[in-house]
Amino acid sequence: MSLFTILLSALLVNNFVLVRFLGICPFMGVSKDVDSAIGMGLATTFVMVVAAAATWLIQWFILEPLGLPFLQTLSFILVIASMVQLVEMFLHKTSPGLYRAMGIFLPLITTNCAILGFAIMGVQNSYSFIETVIFGLGAGLGFTLALMLMAGIREEMQFADIPKPLRGVGIAFIVAGLLSLAFGGFAGLV
């Protein structure tokens, strides 16, 4: 598979949120306005790309040679948690502006199942190093895209007259369903 195919597939055809159901919690929680959606999306993309490199190295240079693949879940989640912490410290030191913008979202990223999910998927597909990084980039941008679309729609929906029981999460899920239907149109693109 070419790198472009991997990127496009993770971004649109198999969009992480709308087709694979990964990262639903932040998708529902942080999609109330477009600005925070972009902040959350970019912070997640950044961690995904860093985590892609780290988990690939761990899987093929530590776990496989030592015959320890059963420790995959345990080691990946620890690496992701410490990556998030590291990114947080690094941003705090080098770019306080960006840190303030992303600050509150960073700790939430650890429990975003899209990150652990894509790391395990990358191993299952036995991607090469560069393919894993591109896959992470595509997955992160796909997450950002879904989050931004959702936030835009939810901002407009504030003025809509929604039946009372559906207000809040109910209508958000139905909108997500329609978005998912639209993304179904990308099937067969790759």
Partner: peptide, 17 residues
């Protein structure tokens, strides 16, 4: 398919409410 999951859950939540 995926859209069915989202829509069913949304309607179920409305019912619970």
């Amino acid at each position: 398919l995926p859209p069915g999951a989202f829509i069913t859950l949304g309607l179920l939540m409305a019912m619970m409410n």
